[in-house]
Amino acid sequence: MGAAPASRDVTSYGMGLAAPLALFFLLFFVAPLLQLLWLSLHNDTAGLQWGLGQYLHFLTDPFSLGVLGSTLLLGAEVTAVCLVLGFPIAWLYQRVGPKLQTIIILIVLLPLLTSVVVRTFAWIVILGRQGIINATLQSLGIIDTPLKLLYTQFGVVIALAQVQMPLMTLPLITALGRIDPNLDDASCSLGAGSWRTFFRIVLPLSLPGIIAGCTLTYAAAITAFITQSLVGGGQMLFMPMYLYQQASTLQNWPFAAAISIIFLLAVLAVVSVFTTLGRMSRGYGGA
């Protein structure tokens, strides 16, 4: 009678505390997704006739496949730009004093917390026909007629890269902070140059951060509905807008559901490829 409670672990809490959120997710997250899957497996709008018609329609329609392809390509381009621009920020962060570190972090954080519509709006001002880039180039006499920057792939990629940059930079800063600085010194004192040390030591050791950053950036870039539609304009169609048009304007819910499932699977596939790479790199990087 006396010994009972002493063996209880006081440092952890019961799983029961997770029950409310688990129930909430079951009702409002898992159930809707199952319903989405269920509807996508029907050939008619009413959801009476089972079949793979919606998927066959998508997978045999060059237009739909084109939209999927350009969305996945867009994600890859944005992720690449974010990596090339974001890595040096993380590198610089490790080199400066605490004051500048805070400033760098706040500069990186600010866009993450600023409204996406506001950030996208800024790019319309910058890339427009009378925008900053065109005005500057014209006043310098480099171009006569304004360049078309808005409503182009270039415009969408650069705007999305800025919008998603924090998602790449923050994990990179974390990863670079975990690398033992002695390794850098050791490599240099053994005769490897800075570039070689960077590509042979720093880059491989920061792989977990690179992979985490790429996963977040890629997933965010391909679903960034607002930036895609405002900077891309009407001519460029990506999966989120395609889904929205089918669901909202055309009221074709089963096809919209199939688009959603295909899109979800595409995102999941990319995320799991990155996660697998991450697991492999963790063994390699030792972080």
């Binding site: 090339v84 621009l85 040096p88 920020i89 610089l92 800024a122 910058i126 800025q162 140059g193 800075s194």
Partner: peptide, 27 residues
């Protein structure tokens, strides 16, 4: 060689930071 490395990294980092902050300032 070390200077070239640090220069390239710093320049890209500064450009990236400017790209991040510029849109908000412009608006």
């Amino acid at each position: 060689e070390a200077i070239s490395f640090e220069l390239v990294m710093t320049v890209i980092a500064v450009i990236a930071l400017v790209i991040i902050i510029a849109p908000s300032l412009v608006v």
